[in-house]
Design a binder for these strands. Structure first.
Lengths: 225, 225
DNA sequence: GTCTATAGCCCGATAGAC
DNA sequence: GTCTATCGGGCTATAGAC
């Protein structure tokens, strides 16, 4: 919720240490593959404190996702709002529903780039693993992710698509948003297969730039049609 | 390997029962979330027989994937070869590298439809879960999947793309194959998010038809460009 | 708030009778 | 080939001292 400073009380520091260790462990080994003993060990904190602070294993797991969503919202939330403002979607404007098509396209580009970086960049590596896992095998934590940012993202892309191609039905626009996301998340979800197929060692700057270029081209194809 | 009939010896029947139960259990709960005790119980087979027939838990897990790849190969293998023949990719033909562009496009359509049905249809539900899990968190079993059919599939799509758009570099063609796959697998990987976003209850015939239509349209956009 | 210690359970693997 | 029985170990959760 409000955890930017390294923490003040000792209790909060313990929580942060546990959350950090739990994020790493759950990301790499999944919920079932992770033991509380290991998390406590890696955090340098006594195991019994997990129950004390988070109730049980599931409570800790959910807390990890709440932290992630909170940080994503503080990071990309402002950008999304700025985007909505640029596009004239903000509620205060009457119905200025005809922004510059080119800036709309640029908006799609920047959303794609941001998603790709989040999912495939070094910074959000563990987040990406956790998010992907919840996509594939949803638990209670999926609700946190979807209502926190995924649903909003899909809705935004759908809206932009419908503005760019007014002929689209709402259903078609929503479907396009999903295809849009699919082209991005495949690079995380099928990471191993992608690297093998492309003959890459990993996603370096060069590779990501190439992917972004291809994504932009694909988006242009849709819009040109 | 060669298991079509309900089995002959009692030993093979036991193996089949265990493989069937293991497929279901691993699909829904993952490797770590599944216990051998549960598999034996659901198979109606004594637990100790797992060690006897498959060595250990991992051996059983890998055997599940070998079975899946075997069945996929017998199912779609002939279709792929027919496709390659139609496209003139078969080695016996010299270099008849200019088949009808329209039949190439139809080939892409049918690959997309087959993949979508495999991943989202009722028939391959458990397979889809297992495959997706291995994509996201690869283990030794990933090798079986990739060398068994995923790599071939990606290679085939890349080839077709390059034939349809000769201007593409090999790298671009490979990337297109990945975007192609991404648009399909998103419907499995992000199933929960997709259903919520679209307001669907599940993937019925109507929904799948709609998805296929949209996929075809997306492919057409790429090719038209 | 933090710790130690442990209860209670389920797991995977194996030994040995049949 | 199939079974019962069990071992050793790791797990989550909790009780209770400090």
């Amino acid at each position: 919720m409000k955890m930017d400073a390294p923490a003040k009380t000792k209790s909060e520091e313990t929580k942060l240490l546990l959350l950090k260790a739990a994020t790493t462990a759950f990301a790499y080994d999944g919920f079932h593959g992770t033991s509380l003993k290991k998390i406590a060990r890696e955090a340098g904190v006594n195991q019994a404190l997990i129950s004390y602070h988070f109730g049980n294993k599931e409570g800790l797991y959910l807390a990890v996702f709440e932290t992630i969503v909170g940080q994503i919202q503080t990071q990309v939330g402002p950008r999304v709002q700025a985007l909505q403002a640029t596009l004239g979607i903000h509620p205060s404007s009457a119905n200025n529903c005809n922004p510059d098509p080119d800036s709309l396209k640029q908006a799609l580009f920047s959303i794609a780039d941001a998603m790709l970086e989040l999912l495939c960049g070094d910074a959000g590596h563990e987040w990406a693993l956790l998010i992907t896992r919840e996509q594939v095998s949803p638990t209670e934590a999926f609700e946190i992710l979807y209502s926190g940012f995924m649903g909003k993202m899909l809705g935004l892309v759908s809206q932009v698509m419908q503005m760019l191609k007014p002929g689209l039905s709402e259903e078609e626009a929503k479907m396009f948003a999903i295809l849009f996301m699919g082209q991005i998340i495949v690079f995380r979800v099928s990471r191993t297969a992608v690297l093998r197929h492309m003959g890459w060692q990993g996603y370096g700057e060069g590779e990501l730039a190439l992917v972004e270029q291809q994504l932009h081209q694909s988006i242009c194809s849709w819009l040109a049609e």
